[in-house]
Design a protein around this nucleic acid. Structure first.
Length: 293
DNA sequence: CCGCGGGCCTGAGAGC
DNA sequence: TGCTCTCAGGCCCGCG
């Protein structure tokens, strides 16, 4: 489910309750996620202080005092729930866990702060693993990941260079995590619409023969950054709601301009077009054929 | 290198 | 109401 903005929102929700706190106890209720939890998962986490919560692409990272990093991915349906004393983490429950936990609560972290952080993932496409900090960048899951779209290094030069060699559609190129990290089906559709570029266009057409960026590349980078920042802002506002109460982290409502709006009028000012749905690489693409060229 | 199909899983929604 | 079918925001593999 989650793309970069959702994962970043989750990071911001977890940081206040996990950073600086110690993991007192871990429940690995359902170890068979996308890949099985490591055999020493609980042992390597219990007693560890979390020194920081980070994000790389769609991955969350929890830095541990031991030098390990807990690497987490939400897959399609993963979310975190944070609860404080009194809900889900009462002293009584600490010693006698509810026999009937909510469905799909696969991993539970009991923090020294009194907070309980629960990972819920119905489809179990999510994943958790533990990697020594110094091996993280070279880990197979991280090694090929491209630039962070909100980082300063990500600009039209970089995107054009990455797309210049590609023979795919622009849509497929943006979904390719080695080209740019963290975009998924929704935000690719949204960014292309903002940039008024057709998802069917060849990726290499945002670069000149020499691989230098053209005006399309500039517009696209601008659109990507804008749509992600807007979405993070919307997620951030939804975060405020669960400061004091229980919070669901992993999904927030956001208004999309084209995604899932098939047949509805295009919202581009002055455009009289209608949003269309097509299938590219087996996935839905929503775009306006009138203003996206 | 590329697109495609299939697979991993469960749940929501549409249609009958 | 309940059944069946399709589809879903991610990612990986093997095939041609």
């Amino acid at each position: 489910m989650p793309e970069l903005p959702e994962v970043e929102t989750v990071r911001r929700g977890l940081a206040p309750v996990m950073e600086g706190a110690r993991i007192v106890r871990v429940e690995a209720r359902r170890p068979d996620l996308r890949r099985p939890l490591p055999h020493d998962f609980v042992k390597r986490l219990e007693g560890q202080t979390v020194t920081g919560i980070g994000r790389r692409a769609k991955y969350l990272t929890a830095d541990l005092a031991s030098g390990d990093v807990l690497l987490m991915h939400l897959g399609m349906s993963g979310s975190f729930r944070v609860s404080h004393d009194g809900k889900g983490a009462t002293p009584g429950e600490f010693h006698h866990p509810r026999p009937t936990a909510p469905a799909h609560d696969h991993v539970v972290f009991h923090m020294s702060s009194g907070a309980t952080v629960t990972f819920n993932d119905p489809r179990r496409f999510g994943l958790m693993l533990i990697v020594p900090r110094r091996e993280l960048a070279d880990h197979p899951l991280m090694r090929e990941v491209g630039p962070e779209p909100l980082g300063n290094a990500f600009d039209a030069n970089l995107l054009a260079a990455a797309c210049a060699l590609k023979k795919t559609s622009l849509k497929a190129a943006l979904l390719d995590q080695t080209v740019v990290a963290g975009l998924g089906n929704i935000y690719v559709c949204e960014a292309l619409h903002r940039a008024r570029l057709s998802p069917k266009r060849r990726a290499s057409t945002i670069a000149t023969r020499t691989g230098a960026p053209n005006a399309r590349a500039v517009a696209l980078v601008e659109a990507i950054k804008a749509v992600l920042n807007d979405a993070i802002k919307a997620g951030g506002s939804s975060l405020r709601n669960h400061r004091d109460t229980d919070g669901e982290l992993g999904y927030f409502q956001h208004h999309f301009r084209v995604y899932d709006r098939e047949g509805e009028p295009c919202v581009t000012p002055g455009c009289r077009g209608t949003v269309k749905r097509i299938v590219q690489n087996g996935r839905s693409t929503f775009f306006c054929p009138t203003c996206q060229r």
